[in-house]
Amino acid sequence: MSFVKKFGAIYKTDLKLLRRDPMLLYSVAMTLVLLLIVRYFKDRVGVYYSLLALVVLVLIPMIFGMLPGFMMADEKEEKTVQALKVIPISSEAFLAYRLTWASIVVAVFTFVAPYILDIEIPQKGLLALMTLFLFEAWTYGLMISSLSESRMQALTVSKVLGWLLFLPPAIKLIVVWRNLSTDWSKFTAFLPTYWLYKVFEEISLNDYSNFPIALAVHLAWLIPLVVMFRKRVL
């Protein structure tokens, strides 16, 4: 079977899932609403706005990384993954296909979000954030698909992992808001989202010294997840 026919077979499955459960459309609408709500409060939160903007920005890769994770969990539950082994298709090619559309949506939202939020991010900073957001989306999607055997399990896993990944920027927001003497968010430095906000807050200073560290931490999470996916899923 040709490369095009292989992915055409998977694409038909995707269309069925989207017609039955249009989560992508709901997620796009929800993300736009969240961005507009945060923008509405810009003049009301003052100096805390940049961190509040980051909190909603972090949700973008989490929301759209969750969707392919759910789709792959559905495929595991309905035994579609086993059928894919007959095509045959490599784990890497399947992942590349499954995460491509999510990556495109994340990249588009990362590009337009600063305009909606009315925050200035230079092109270099935007590319840095976009790169990390893509890694975030892939990591979150692989976590859900590798640790779930059904849609119900995927919902539970996504909630637990979502709160975990959401901790660094949320704690940082509390530290700044309450003017705490200790930056408690540093104890979450093992999480990729910690380095995401470190890069974000230094963009205005034209300082990208933490970007290589952020990239390394994201890869340290992503590579084992890809290995786990190959062993447990496809």
Results as ranks from 00 to 15, higher is better:
Lys16Pro: 05
Arg19Ala: 11
Arg20Met: 11
Pro22Leu: 05
Leu24Lys: 00
Ala29Ser: 05
Leu34Ala: 06
Leu35Val: 05
Leu35Ala: 06
Leu35Trp: 07
Ile37His: 06
Val38Asp: 11
Val38Ile: 14
Tyr40Trp: 13
Tyr40Arg: 11
Phe41Cys: 01
Arg44Val: 06
Gly46Asp: 10
Gly46Met: 07
Ser50Asp: 06
Leu57Pro: 01
Val58Leu: 09
Leu59Asp: 02
Leu59Arg: 07
Ile60Ser: 02
Ile60Ala: 03
Gly65Cys: 08
Leu67Val: 15
Phe70Asp: 02
Met71Asp: 12
Asp74Trp: 12
Glu77Phe: 10
Glu78Asn: 15
Val81Asp: 08
Val86Ser: 11
Pro88Gln: 04
Pro88Trp: 01
Ile89Lys: 07
Phe94His: 11
Phe94Asn: 06
Tyr97Asp: 08
Thr100Asn: 12
Ile104Phe: 01
Val105Cys: 02
Phe111Arg: 00
Ala113Tyr: 10
Pro114Arg: 02
Ile119Ser: 12
Gln123Ser: 15
Gly125Phe: 04
Met130Arg: 00
Leu132Asn: 08
Trp138Asp: 00
Gly141Lys: 05
Leu142Phe: 12
Leu142Thr: 13
Met143Phe: 12
Met143Thr: 02
Ile144Asp: 09
Ser150Cys: 12
Ala154Phe: 01
Thr156Lys: 14
Val157Cys: 11
Leu161Phe: 12
Leu161Asn: 04
